[in-house]
Design a protein around this nucleic acid. Sequence first.
DNA 1: CGGGGGCTTGAGGCCACTCAACGATAGTGG
DNA 2: CCACTATCGTTGAGTGGCCTCAAGCCCCCG
Lengths: 227, 227
Amino acid sequence: MFVRVTADSAPRPNSLRDLGMTSDSNTLVSLSEFSYRKGTEIYGEKEPAEYVYQVKSGAVRSYKLLSDGRRQIGAFHLTGDIFGLENGSEHRFTTEAIVDTAVRLIKRQSLETVAESDAMVARNLLSMTTSNLQHAEDHMLLLGRKTSLERVAAFLLEMDKRLTAAGVIALPMSRRDIADYLGLTLETVSRALSRLHELGVLGFVGNTQRQIVLLDRNQLANLDLQS
Amino acid sequence: MFVRVTADSAPRPNSLRDLGMTSDSNTLVSLSEFSYRKGTEIYGEKEPAEYVYQVKSGAVRSYKLLSDGRRQIGAFHLTGDIFGLENGSEHRFTTEAIVDTAVRLIKRQSLETVAESDAMVARNLLSMTTSNLQHAEDHMLLLGRKTSLERVAAFLLEMDKRLTAAGVIALPMSRRDIADYLGLTLETVSRALSRLHELGVLGFVGNTQRQIVLLDRNQLANLDLQS
DNA sequence: CGGGGGCTTGAGGCCACTCAACGATAGTGG
DNA sequence: CCACTATCGTTGAGTGGCCTCAAGCCCCCG
């Protein structure tokens, strides 16, 4: 669990713009790229937070474990997402590549140094942390109070927003991952999807079970009784 | 739900030190105090976030509602806690006084102005947001994967840390509040407490059901299988 | 002392979980 | 190219933990 995956590419300098830092300063921070194969760990919970990561391609899950193996996935990180940004010195989740994944990484310390002098960067760090907080807050409502059907509906709508290509949601994660994200079992997730299929809310593409078409977003949104 | 409670006291200037801002700058921000009676709303979800609050005395719950009335409490705010700090312009929770509560409040805008020029203040804002995030992350694990007994055990340990006086936890909130915090029903919370009592893990003080003595913190911590 | 809200406890029900079988798919090696 | 295997997903049957509904107690407070 604490084995750091080694990568093959060399560091190369870049600007912070890719991190959503629209700072004008041309500050150079050490940037490099890593690749992780499907299923490998990127960092472990309680490891020192040396780097911040941005997904170039692929998908990442970040989760916590109980001692008996129960798992709660806190978030999925998709192309463009930044993760591993901690204020303290330790990571609070374990992260793994769901599929083969390429990430860009930034030394945490260099980011902090820049933030110290550049108010714009500091504000962006706060803004990113706030987005994460907001997501966690919404997810608490889902985990604490929603039914299985509502959870799956909310999940599909979230993924629809984040990775739809041509109306089709190509899910990178397994039923088990979805279940551990939604606080359910994989069987319950599967049953909920079948039920939504029966209801005519969604369709499946081809023979692969990972591609989903949303046919009735309104009905989905009604299942996911917001507010 | 969106009725702002009006208060009776006048604003008076103060320093930011009470907010955990150890800034040396003597910047004055507009500060005032309000009192809220038991059960009254402090602000509503989606209201503009005009102020940031600090609990002087009392206790506050912040929650989200689903349209059919299901409620998820995201956090309890006790003496000294700061709440209502949003990055965006809107509050993401509704907050209510659980008991008669006095709060100190700061104009959000003045805080932002100070943060712009003072890196120390900016860092403290980030640090507070990160604490909130960390709490939410831990709570997701609880809501998604823990049993009712583990949830109640975790709750007691959290309250033990935050408000124990002389070994006794004097809970300001009702069973329903606890239930809505833990994603359970009030009956299940009550049964879990009875069970812990039977197990000799805790005791009750006097006749009031709101005062609890932890007799075996280790056993509680084992129920709340961390890691 | 009466009323009401909060808490506990019991009985029964239901939703999600567990256990299990089966089908489909993709990857592997003969 | 085709078994062979492992993995993933679906579906069914049965269980169980928490919820629902209900009754009763205690305490606070008027």
